[in-house]
Structure formats: C-alpha cells, structure tokens
Nucleic acid binder design. Sequence first.
DNA 1: GATTTTTTTCTCGACAGTCGAGAAATTTAG
DNA 2: CTAAATTTCTCGACTGTCGAGAAAAAAATC
Lengths: 413, 413
Amino acid sequence: MLAKSSTELVRQKNSALVLSALRRHGPLAHTELSDFTKLSSATVSVITADLERAQIIEKAEQQAASGRGRPRVLFSQRRDCGYLIVVVISSDAVQYSLVDYTGRLIDRFTEDRQQNVVDVDRFVAGLRDALNRIVTRSQLSRDKVLMISISSKGLVDASEPVLRWSPIFGRAEIDFAAVLRDEWTAQVILGNETLLVAAALGRQEEISTRGGFRAMAALSLGHSIGLGIVRRDQEGNHHISAPNFGHMMHVPGGGLCRCGARGCIEAYAGFYAMLRTAFDVPLDTIPAKFVPIAELDKIAASARHGGRRNVLAFRQAGLALGNGLSRVLSLHERMPIVITGPGVRYYDLLIEGITEGLAESHVVRMEGMPELRVIVDEPTLVFEGHLNRAFSIIDNDIVKRSGSVVELRDRAG
Amino acid sequence: MLAKSSTELVRQKNSALVLSALRRHGPLAHTELSDFTKLSSATVSVITADLERAQIIEKAEQQAASGRGRPRVLFSQRRDCGYLIVVVISSDAVQYSLVDYTGRLIDRFTEDRQQNVVDVDRFVAGLRDALNRIVTRSQLSRDKVLMISISSKGLVDASEPVLRWSPIFGRAEIDFAAVLRDEWTAQVILGNETLLVAAALGRQEEISTRGGFRAMAALSLGHSIGLGIVRRDQEGNHHISAPNFGHMMHVPGGGLCRCGARGCIEAYAGFYAMLRTAFDVPLDTIPAKFVPIAELDKIAASARHGGRRNVLAFRQAGLALGNGLSRVLSLHERMPIVITGPGVRYYDLLIEGITEGLAESHVVRMEGMPELRVIVDEPTLVFEGHLNRAFSIIDNDIVKRSGSVVELRDRAG
DNA sequence: GATTTTTTTCTCGACAGTCGAGAAATTTAG
DNA sequence: CTAAATTTCTCGACTGTCGAGAAAAAAATC
C-alpha cells in the first residue's frame, strides 16, 4: 500500500532536487539553483541554509565578478562531507578507488588476482586488507566512508549485497554486508558490472536526448556475457536491471556452460566457447577457466583471412547473441543496444551473426532492427555507473537524515 | 529530471490514499479511514469535506448503531460520480459492460463477431454502435462516462491506445483514441488481455500476502499465448507489463506462425499449432485462422489414452512454454507463474513438457522450480483487471482535478 | 567621487497542509 | 438521570512553499 505524504516529504524531495542539481552541474549560484529546480528563490534560500548548517554544502569563494550587479555566490558540495570506496572485481584483478563527495578521485590502486585462486576466504581477507589500506593511506577516519560500492560479473541478489553466482567463485556465495559489517559503518552495495554500464549509459542518454529516451540495453562481451537494461518511467526515474542474460537458454540441451547447465548463451558467445568451436572440441567438454585473449586474437586474425572454422566460431557466437537479444526485445520493447566489453574487438566478425539472429524474430519483423552502437571503453562506463548509483543513494539518505539533524539542533538550542 | 514537490502534491497523494481505501474496503467511517491511511483524524476531516463538496463521496445513511458511543457515519463513493465502459474483445465475441463509480455492474451485453470478418472499418462501426447503445439503454449522458477501457489479445502500444498487432486483425492497426475522439470525451485506454489478468492477480496477491510478494507472472493458454507480469517496487507500487511472449522466438527458423515469422512459441503451443503437430502436418503449413475447441478435446482424449502422436503434440507445446518461461525467469527473477485461459483444460498433458522445458535452464538449477498455479476462470480475472486499472487511473485524475475545482469555487464565492 | 543602474540574495507575510489535543456530540450501561 | 464510552469535529501550533519587495553590492554614468 502507498504511504501517506507530508510536508516533511516535500522538503526531502526538494532538498534532493537541489543536491542533484549541484551534482549534475557543479557549483551553482542561488539564482541558477532556482532556475534548475523550478523552486522559488525563497525556498532555495531555506533549503541551502539547512544544507549548509548540516555541513553538506558550502558557499564557495567569491568568483571573479563577471558582470555588473551583486556578484553571485556559488554553493558547492563539501568535499569532506563523506567518501565513497569503489571496488571493481574483474577476472584478473580488483581495482580499489577512493572518491570524495563531489565525485573526485582521490586514490586508486589495483591488486592482481591469482587466476587459479578461487578461495573465497582468501579473497575476503585481501578485500578487508585493501579497504583498510586505502583509508589509512589517505589518513581518513573509517566513519567518514559513507558507502562501499562493489561490482562483479555474475548473479547478484536483488535486495541484499550478496553475490549469488559468479564466473570467478562459482556458486560460493559472498555476503559483502556480513563480511564488512564488523569493521565498517558504511553502507555496502553490490551491482552486476553490466548493470552499472547501463546506469552510466542511461545518464549519458538522458543528458544528450534531454529526457527523450525510453529504454536502452548494454551488452558486454568477454569471457562472460553481461546485459544491463535501463528504462525511464513517465516521471523520469531510471530503472536499471541486470537480467541473467549470459545464462539464458539459447539451445535446449546444447553446449556445456561454465555454470554447469547446457545451452546457455555464454556457452556459445563467451570467449571460451568461441575457442571451443574454433578448435572443434566437443560441446560437452568442460570449458577452460580462463582464455588468454591472445589466443582469440589469433583465431580472429585467421577468420579475417577466411579461415572457415574460425569464421564459424564468431558466426555462431553472433547468432546466439542475436537470438538472445531478439528474446529480450520480445519481453521488453524495441530499444537501442550498446555493445561493449573486450569482445567488441571482434565486432566485425560477430555482427553478421547478430544481425541474422535478430532478423528472424517477430519483434524485429514488426518494428525493425534495433539501433546497434559500439562503445570500446567499458571500464570508464563501469566506474561512472558506480558513481551514479552510489551518489544517488547517498544523496537520498542525506536529505532523509538532515531533517532530523535540524530537529535535534532546535531542541538543543 | 524529477519534478519539484509542493504541499498541493501532498494533498493530492493523501486524497488518493483516502479514495483508494474506500475503493478497497467499501464504505468506511472517519475513524477507519484514519486507521487505514495512517492520517490524523484532523486531516481525514479536511479531505473528506473536500471530496464531499466535489461530489465524489457522500455520507451514507446512519448504520444501525452497533456499540455504544456516538454512532459512526460512513463515507462511501458516490455511484453517480462517473461511469466506466469495459470492452473485452475476444476472438469470437465482444463484451460490453457498463460499471458505476463504485465498481458495480449496471449493464452488459455481448456481440458475436463473425469468425471470418477481419474488416477493421466494420468492426469499428460495430464498436461505435454498441457504445452508443449501452449509454442510451441506461439513460446516461455521454459525458458522465469517464473512461472506456478496452482489452484485446495481441500487441499494444506502450503509451497510446493503439493496437499494433492482433491475432484477429493482424497488422491492421487500430487507434482507439482517434476512432472515439469525436464522439466521446471519455479517456480511452487499451490493454493486452493478459496484462489485465496480471493486474488482477497482483491485487489479489497483495491482499492475501499483505504486501509480501515481489513478482508474479500470468500465462494464458488458448488460440494464442499471452503473458503478463506484475512486479512490486519498494514503495509498494505495482508495475504491470505484457511482454510479447507468444511471439518470442522458440526455435530459430522453426514452425510457421500466424504472425508470419518462424519458430514463435505460439507456433508450438497455440491451439492451431498443437493441432498441426497432432495431424503431422508440415510445420510450414499456413496455420488455420480458428480451431474449434472440440477438435482439440478429441486429440486430448486420445492422448489421455496413450495416442503417441497426440501425446507428442502436447509435450512439444509444453516444452515451448517451459523453455520460454525459463527465458522469462532469466530476464527477471524467479516468480510464481499462474496458468490460465481455455488451454488449462489440457494442463495434465502439458505439465510434463513445461516442467522439462523449465528444468534445463540455469535459473531453475540455481533457484529451483518456480511455483505453478492453475486458475480456470480467466474472464473474471480479465474483468477485475479492467476495473483495477481503470479506477486507479480515474481516482488519480479525480484528486488532481478536485484541487482546482475547489480553487474555482473559492474565487466564485 | 557621488549617483544611478543592474543583478543577486535575503526576508517577510500570506497561504496551504498536517498533526495532537481536547471539545462536542451522541449513544449505551447502570 | 448520570456516567462511561466512542466517534466526530475544531482549534492552535508547526512546517513548508511562494511572490513581492527590501537589502546588498558591483558596474556604469555623470
């Protein structure tokens, strides 16, 4: 059931509006805030005063007076309002980044992961260690870290920060909240990597089309296959989701997949699967844990010179992706598809199969081919997605708290 | 971007809360309204006074005083506040229902459709005619009809009341808003039939589990195959969608479907498809427009006595459904599936294939079999779904308008 | 250098909304 | 007839937004 509304909620929403304007556009003057948020000048005054008192924003230095009239005073987010740690887990390394409240990168390092180590306990110990390192190195107190945002490939619980299945750890679950609870007060969130790509793309598209988009999919090609979907509702909110696309059934009873099931899309379009097809290994061979990309580059080179078996490997991968995408479009609607990840270097070889796999379906016959775009730089999108998601949660929490803070002050005073 | 919030919006939301409590529970006293909505007694007084002035609710007769103390006075919706016309288009008939603001059925009749007539113009003429008839018969003025809610099988536009593709009219589109604009001021909405089933199930589940459900799917079996999904977000809002499941690709390049594509789920699990398999007709035969259900009953009877070819027909249909459902679950999450529609009479023959088709997939291996339920009475669910959807829109519009009405009154007075 | 113009920020009073507390209304129990 | 119980109504306090205009402060003008 819907919850009741009150004037407090109004204030919360409008405060969030002010914070999001600052996050989007950087330091803004009173007048600009009023313009962007459509709030009256008086309301902006009250809200900014509140946020300033709560040490969330501050008045910036006088900027060089540009025109005549009373010079503007800019409000900006306080860098030290709180910090975010971003943890990107990939198959060969884990990257740790420390970011201040304005989204500026303060510190970053990467730890290599042993390819063969899938020991969860050792991984967790390394994680704890690295998190400790990054705060001490920057001489930050632990409780200044508001959030730890983690991403991995694989299957993530919808509501809790629990990794259910991943290509790295298999079915060994990791509950990051439980693991970090004793050392950290920070909120811990976990997202599928491609979900974050979709989040970043959604924001980019929102800005470039000025709210004129409805939905968008991000397809990440690599050792495993990821899909993220971002949709925009009538009110302009973005809903992101990361379907378990890589392990959606492609062919019933088909090739053996790393996950143990048969016929998954990944078992045709993942790097190991393309290698398997190229070498004509039986489809029920247990797949390699990790495939050096140089191997695939060789196959691609051969395919580009007409090697039939190798052409077939990419074609079959493309077909699996195309068929899968057509099913996604059937279940949602026609939407642009952005293809990214290390696998895009083989886009020229995959595209034929993808197109063919899409073309056969009812949706595409009815509504036409979806727009396909290629974006090479996936890591940047992932990081952007982390910031988008984390700070939108953080800002929302802040406005919820800042109300009660004021209340406490009033009682004290 | 998000819109700003104001005290007016607070009033709107809380008024909607009061209206929805009345719709859900019937006539309620001041105290009960306050309990259900969690609004303070004072606020309930103001809101009910407003709604009463706007002629949307009224104080009911004194009920027989049950306990001691000042007797309760019940508020109830005014029946004559406005009316809804429900139009259910099915393959063999069109049903028209007139419903008052409280959801009570006032008038209903059914017009048979000629199986072979697929002339859109003639259909539209019949629609206009029937709509006129139902209001004149009840001696209502046209502008008292607030909404015309139409449902059909097939593909419906996400934002406008336009039928994009249907098993009846094929690719001949019908824009119901355009067709009815000149004669009716009422808002026109269109929904896929199974979408409405999902809407009804969502509300039922909300009540029975008291908000403890996350998602649910409705699968309708018949001449064509429909799927509706209802999901509940954190705030408790229901999001319903009707994926184009029947025409999702089952087998690339497979059996010819009514839609012209190949390998759709419907081309294996629709009534005509099962008939085709049973009679061992080639899969590229152009499918029959309509299959008498008696024909299928015969096949089912034979299958129940062990007729191999006929058992296969149902098994293949089940497999197509099971595989398709597994893909749906991959793209969303594990959720209970309610099976309904005329095809449930063959559930005993289909279930084996459905189960097998589901079992193979990654999701089901990971999270287990989804719960399957059978509900026989589909038409009732469809009608309930119409009422749910229509009145939730109507109530929301009313609270938006009632604010400005009050304003006008104030200026006049 | 004093005055005017321009632009921005701040402040005040009006108005809308919610809430808690208690008054008023009205029936039953004794 | 009075007291108790129960429900509805009303009042004052509080919070929130808004428009208008005052106050501030720099540039332009005389």
